[in-house]
């Protein structure tokens, strides 16, 4: 019976050579997912891309787009709206990534520990997580920033505090689904210890779901942070911030519409880019 039939290991999908076949959905997903990198590069290069200093008046106030050397117009004291938007996008993008990374790490750790240890540790950690999830995250974030005093750091802390429980739930869910599979028991019988099982036999299986959630979440965060900033819970006055720039200039809406509208559009552009990229990552990781 020990006849060895010839066996060739097929290449896994992610090692297949990159094809540029534009009819293949995979190609489009790769292009879409790379938007994350493209947007990060743009955010990094904001100082190079901006035609003017965002903080300094450089021309006539309230110039319409295309006039007075302002591509997207100028605000009430003659600052370049385009430059302010580019800097604002940079701040929003990195803020969103920082919160996601924080949530991913804290939530992932909590979820991993809870799911792989089970028992009372699991119960305790998940009750705490559920407690957070039972409260409306955005409202809680507003309360936290408002009481600590408006500042960019406080906003980031507040949003991270209310954001990680989502990741804890997802990672814990995936881990406990995996933990019920016999492969974990087989590993136990093979002599693997708790930590090894958690890191080698459980964690890699939970990562795809967590990564998909995280990439779909960037857009949500961009919008949530813009909302906080709009309520005045972001950086203080002269700093370029999209939500605040729009809120402060609402009174100009019916006359100089571009001043409040353009920063809002910048938020929407960020969110659309993030959503397209997030969708693409999901399609790449688990194609229906």
């Amino acid at each position: 019976m020990a006849v060895a039939e010839p066996f060739v290991v097929p290449r896994p999908a992610w090692r297949r050579p990159l094809s540029l076949d534009l009819r293949a959905p995979r190609t489009w997903s790769i292009i879409g997912a790379s938007l994350f990198a493209v947007m990060t590069l743009i955010a990094l290069a904001a100082p190079l891309l901006s035609p003017h200093d965002p903080l300094v008046p450089v021309g006539i106030p309230l110039a319409a787009p295309g006039h007075g050397g302002f591509l997207l117009g100028s605000d009430s004291i003659g600052r370049d709206v385009l430059s302010r938007c580019l800097y604002g996008m940079r701040a929003s993008w990195f803020a969103a990534l920082v919160v996601i990374a924080g949530g991913f790490l804290i939530g992932g750790l909590v979820g991993l520990v809870a799911g792989s240890s089970g028992g009372w540790i699991d119960n305790l950690l998940m009750r705490i997580t559920d407690g957070f999830l039972a409260l409306p995250a955005p409202v809680l974030a507003i309360a936290v920033v408002a009481s600590l005093g408006p500042s960019f750091t406080h906003t980031l802390i507040a949003v991270s505090v209310v954001w990680w429980p989502f990741y804890a739930r997802i990672v814990r869910g995936e881990i406990s689904k995996l933990a019920a599979r016999p492969h974990v028991e087989a590993a136990r019988l093979a002599g693997a210890g708790r930590v090894r099982i958690a890191l080698r036999h459980l964690l890699p299986g939970a990562l795809p779901a967590a990564v998909v959630t995280a990439s779909l979440d960037v857009g949500n965060l961009v919008l949530a942070l813009a909302g906080l900033s709009f309520l005045g819970l972001g950086q203080s006055a002269p700093a370029p911030e999209l939500g605040a720039d729009s809120a402060r200039n609402l009174s100009l809406l019916l006359q100089q519409w571009w001043v409040p509208v353009v920063p809002g559009i910048a938020v929407a552009v960020l969110a659309v880019i993030a959503n397209v990229a997030g969708d693409s990552v999901r399609n790449l990781i688990d194609p229906e």
Binding site: E185, A186, L189, A192, H201
Partner: peptide
């Protein structure tokens, strides 16, 4: 010494992201 076990669902009893060599190697680490 520990007994070893073979499960009904052989696919589910192998860690999906590990190669056969890694899985077998775990017992002779």
């Amino acid at each position: 010494s520990r007994p070893q076990m073979v499960f009904q669902d052989s696919g589910a009893s192998l860690t999906p992201w590990m190669t056969v060599e890694q899985i077998l190697g775990e017992r002779v680490r």
